[in-house]
Computed example of a mutant assay.
Amino acid sequence: MAAFLGLSLRVTAQQLSVQASTDTSHIRLGEPVKMQVEIKVPAALKGYQLSLAILPDSFEHFEVVDRAKLDTLAPTAEYAGIFRQTTTITSFDSGRWVIPPIKYELIRPDQTVDSAFTEPLTIDVNTVQVDTTKAFKPIKSVRGVAWNFMDYIWYFVIGAAAMLIIGFLVWWFFIRRKKAPAVVVPPAPTETPYQVAIRELHTLEKDKPWHQDVKAYYTTLTDVLRNYFEQQFKIAALEQTSAELLQNIKPVTILNQQRDKLQAILTVADLAKFAKLQPAPEDHEDCLQKAIAIVEWTKPKPPATADADKKNGEK
């Protein structure tokens, strides 16, 4: 099924254009469906930022099986940027299900936003047909098989080799080898999650690694924040997408207060890491300062300050 089925919403040549298609509209339970989204940025737009939609692992009776990397095509006279991404999905629920519209946004240099949605795509999921006109066959009884030594010879060989190896290890460790004196290693000084995060952020501030590799810089920056969230707030941040992380910080009040800063960092980082776009030079320093501000705002208070705040609250 090389040809893809279905079309998506198209807008004028001066606006963002997206198109979604699938390689089939009929599957059986568990069969894969390849959904391809093509994003076109008109040539009239310069210095844009593209906000990519990220499908959750499960949505509307569908499961995401694989996410291919974003492909960047050569620009043309009509389009300044052409991007394609293929996502493999499947369903284990029979019926006619709809892939909902997917939203994509393009941020212009003047901070105005163009939005475009893909059209909904319908997939029929069918069960395996069973011929009920035929009679059921009886269950066959268990049949015995004659024992043959050659069928198990490798088990004997492996068992004998294992016994020889174990015997040699016992002889070496308890008879041949002299017991070495125990070396006491002093415990390494421990750092709090706040201390680790702020030290690594100040290292980035000093080294300015975005001059060498922008993608590696944003990967390191977001990893520092995600590790800090895991250690300080017990949020599984390293395994979550940007959208999932922003959703899961809501119960943590002090962290949710910094939601706008975190969203701004993750948006620029995703563009640099996945869309192969180059953020503006001032964005690098701005994202770093926002990250430092988030860590400073959410750092744990000293015990004396925390006790005082608790007493004031009780009054």
Rank of each mutant, 00 (worst) to 15 (best):
G30P: 06
G30C: 07
R67W: 07
D57K: 12
P75E: 06
V65R: 13
D71M: 12
D71T: 07
R28Y: 12
D57T: 13
L73V: 07
V64P: 03
P56K: 04
E60A: 12
S58T: 13
E63F: 07
E31L: 12
Y79K: 04
D71L: 15
A44F: 00
F59G: 11
D66P: 04
A44R: 06
V41T: 03
Q36D: 05
E60V: 04
F59Q: 10
I39E: 02
E60I: 04
K34D: 08
D57Y: 03
A53M: 05
P56N: 09
M35E: 12
P32F: 10
V64E: 05
I54G: 03
A74L: 14
Y48V: 05
T24A: 10
A68H: 15
V64Y: 04
I54H: 05
A77P: 03
I39H: 05
R28T: 09
Q49Y: 03
Y48P: 00
A77S: 09
I39M: 01
D23I: 05
I54M: 07
L52I: 10
E38L: 08
E31Y: 15
I27A: 14
D71P: 02
T72A: 09
L52T: 01
L52M: 15
P75K: 01
P56V: 08
D23V: 05
L55F: 01
Q36G: 01
L52G: 06
V33C: 11
